[in-house]
Design a protein around this nucleic acid. Structure first.
Length: 159
DNA sequence: CGCATTTGACCAGCGC
DNA sequence: GCGCTGGTCAAATGCG
């Protein structure tokens, strides 16, 4: 979950919107995104909290098989450093400790449901959790709550 | 010209 | 069996 005013969260990947539907739980439509990388079948659902319109709930499905591309498609990983560490995505979806706003904001299922992030059959029996070494925390600043904290998914921060 | 977004239609699964 | 909801596809359109 991320607190942001915009839907298109720049999390380092390139997303292509392929659908949008209005859901009953929320008066706001839910958007469906897919990673533009052909080798990457990661999907993402973005819906807005019905309680607080400034909060978007991003649900990732799958894991990226490429590094966070700072460049658009076409120029795949050129740095050997990237190819040496495929599947860098921590994939710690909606980590309870990653939430940075008050509670009781989630109307649906309990917000503290750490079990729901374990994709059954998607990632296999082994939980995919990379150490924070994959992300050089050079951008991690104590003041990232203001701007960076809004666009950086909890998985990339893990704290 | 190429790519991303938009939007309606279509399909599958589930509940009643 | 029918209706509803959620998810995906594909054509059209706009923008860079």
């Amino acid at each position: 979950m991320t607190k942001s005013e915009v839907d298109h969260l720049e999390d380092g990947y390139r997303w292509r919107k392929y659908g949008q539907k209005a859901v009953k739980n929320s008066p706001f439509p839910r958007s469906y995104y897919r990673c533009t990388n052909t080798k990457c079948t990661v999907k993402k659902r973005v819906e807005r909290s019905s309680q607080d319109s400034s909060i978007v709930i991003t649900t990732y499905e799958g894991q990226h098989c490429h590094h966070t591309v700072g460049f658009p498609r076409g120029g795949l990983i050129n740095h050997e450093a990237f190819t040496s560490q495929l599947t860098p995505l921590p994939s710690q979806f909606f980590h309870p400790s990653g939430v940075q706003y008050p509670h009781e904001l989630v109307p649906m299922s309990s917000p503290a449901a750490p079990e729901s992030h374990t994709m059954p059959g998607e990632t296999g029996p082994e939980p995919i959790r990379l150490p924070e070494t994959s992300q050089p925390d050079a951008t991690q600043q104590p003041t990232d709550e203001g701007l960076l904290g809004d666009i950086v998914p909890p998985g990339m921060r893990s704290r």
